[in-house]
Write a protein that binds this DNA or RNA. Sequence first.
RNA 1: GCCCGGAUGGCGAAACGGGUAGACGCGAGGGACUUAAAAUCCCUUUCCCGCAAGGGAGUCCCAGUUCGAGUCUGGGUCCGGGCACCA
Length: 836
Amino acid sequence: MTEPSDRTAAAHPAEYDPAVIERKWQDRWDANGTNRTDLVGGVRPFYALMMFPYPSAEGLHVGNLFAFTGNDIYGRFQRLQGHTVFEPLGFDAFGIHSENFALKVGTHPADLIPRNIENFRRQLKQAGLMIDWTHELSTTDPAYYKWTQWLFLQLYKRGLAYKKRAAVNWCPNDKTVLANEQVIAGECERCGAKVEQRFLEQWFFRITDYAGRLLANLDWLDWSESTKLAQRNWIGRSDGAELTFRVQDLEDFAGTATIAQGPSGEFPAQPIDITVFTTRPDTIFGATYLVLAPEHPLVDALTIDEQREDVGAYKRNAAKQDIVTRKVNRDKTGVFTGSFAINPATGQPIPIWVADYVLMEYGTGAIMAVPGHDERDFEFAKAFDLPIVRVVAGADDGNAHAPLETAYIETANTRLVNSGEFSGLPVLEAKRQITGWLADRGHARPVVNYRLHDWCISRQRYWGPPIPVIYCDRCGTVPVPERDLPVELPYVEDFKPDDTGISPLARVESWYRVACPSCGGEARRETDVSDTFLDSAWYFLRYPSTDFADVPFDPVLTEKWLPVTSYIGGNEHAVLHLLYSRFVTMVLHDAGQVSFEEPYERFRAHGMIVREGAKMSKSRGNVVNPDEYIERWGADTFRTYLMYLGPYEEGGDFRDQSVVGVRRFLDRLWSSAFDSTTDGAPDQAVLRKLHQTIKKVSADIPALSYNTAIAAMMEYINVVRRGERTAHRDEVEPLVQLVSPFAPHLAEELWERLGHEGSIFDAGWPEFDPAMAAEDLITIAVQVNGKMRGTIQLPNGSGQEAALEAALAAPAIAKFVPAAPKKVIFVPGRLLNLVV
RNA sequence: GCCCGGAUGGCGAAACGGGUAGACGCGAGGGACUUAAAAUCCCUUUCCCGCAAGGGAGUCCCAGUUCGAGUCUGGGUCCGGGCACCA
């Protein structure tokens, strides 16, 4: 053994130098193809997917590395368990983010992205991830987006892609379309001008057709509960009814002006019905007015002459507001149309209003307002002095006629009041009966609504895959034939959005003008590009098949490797990305392209890491740059620290000061392994601890409880080294295996130095032996009246008798037990509680 | 406003279906080695009283269930994240 005084950084021959060994093993993995997956021949396939990053100019974010390392450890562990693990990575490189950055620094995204990707690849390799780089992909590669466009065509063919006019945010100063995130408090983030709504023809996917299935499958998916809950809320199922209200025939209603003429100048020949959606048909007796969204098609027909000016002004004003402000502003505004409808329950006429708190996109764009039992209706009724009627009261509430101070929205343990023959019924029962009663008279039908909207995939931008559609004056909308894919994105020097509000691609005449694939006549290309979320909605299908140029995904490989075995990612994608990829997979399933309808068997959301208690951000200047830490501590230490700083699924606090603790652990493991001996036999007590550690680490890794797995290994190395003893090789070698998913380079190096050939990742996992782990003597807590009074040691397996005897024999405990205990509670192996 | 998480030493955090609170790590204090420093190793480290033996209190607050509550139930406070007029 070396003298302690010789153990200085320079002098000790076995000093752990991560920079050297990490480089050595990264090169060797490359040379030997250690991380390459045998997709065709591999047995027990395990697809360990991580969310691919957007390759930003700033380089890899520590949050990316936190996510990837967690996935890598799980993947390496599965490999050690005998699976063939596929751990691919690619780049999500299209989108407004790169486009805006390129604009800002005056470069072109097509030049910027390859540089960024190169930097990312370098950083990822340095992090020691088990990535199979032979299946790398980028969404900006025509060989990739050819199939993104193909995917659009599959949806188009199935009637799931359609075009409609929809509102976009428009900056009148920059004369460009803005994403919702670019609108700050109703103003353009760049110039501060007030943002307006504009209507453009845009492409949508009918994801709402799949709302029911997307919701139902959540019941059996093995996903983080928080993610499933977020999806359920996003899909937002509500069970209710559509009710119809007949507009009052004004000739029967003396004293009011005649109903307005229609836009064509005719009086409406048919009686007008207004259909509303409600989840509370039980409250219909309290419906004291109706409200239509400003965009509702019946508004003009219902507006009487005297009100025409006011209603017109209100509609114009609503149209001018940007999409964000309209939803955020809660002040109730509205205008009376002058018309009335008949409440089918009470037979009374109720006024019809127009207000922007009713949204055209949801339900029928019209509501029956029940101010007594809906907060928004209550506020509106107060603002415009409309009648508020109470129709629900608490079951034991005697004062059913007291005026309401606020909307009473309780449904549990309540009953109807002021509701004719239905008064006295519990709300839930009333819902059923009133819907039935109204349905019999043709005024109601049960309806399920979802708050999920169809997916708008059009972007009036440059940096994305062109939507593969051609417009021909003679043939109309013609999809680009599959044989003509990809529709390549032309290199445009000036890709800045301009004042036309249409994509910069419209300015590239040579690209824009095209022969109609159907008739050969003059035609024009669609100039919008598709949403980045479409690129990422199917990338997991492409990875195994990146070698195939003529199909998006090879049927045999897809059948073998999908659905994804394990997907790990951030909960910021809980709804959009995860929902869109589920939708796309379901569509491909229905089209007979894949055999499964859910893309990810298991999904786990990791937590977020903050630094020194504060969220990392560029403006705070507290962003962790992985390069610096890897250079200073080594990738193995950095990886292990990231996994140690908190529970993986909750995230944690990155503290610079604490990294050293993990490095010390690896140093100790290194020197113990290096100095270990094969002389003599391993220590029995150490071996017992070893097997307890094997058990814990083997259980913690699949549960993603990485922090406690690392703590257990630290505890074990402390036992191995206690009293500066020299470790036996059989004591440390299994620990090298246990640590290998966390610190792969160090583990490979020690494995080699311990005399093994080949990668440690092909050498299996240490076996847990319960007999080896069992303790002969156990410690039991003794309580008196539930209060801790001491501990006793007993042979493992002792019963209550022996425990009681030992407890009473201990003076420190016995002094609290004056007489025979009234009751004895014994938990084997844990505790004895004496009640006196 | 609504929906999810959280709250445990000086700090990051442990604690299987209720059973010895604070594992593991950082920091701090003390010691060994060294001419010295760094590194390394050992000891102490929830708080209060006590020289000690020992005792008392303690997991955000207030109640409750239980032989026993960080863990379960009800009510409240604060912090973080998400969604936002969805009828």
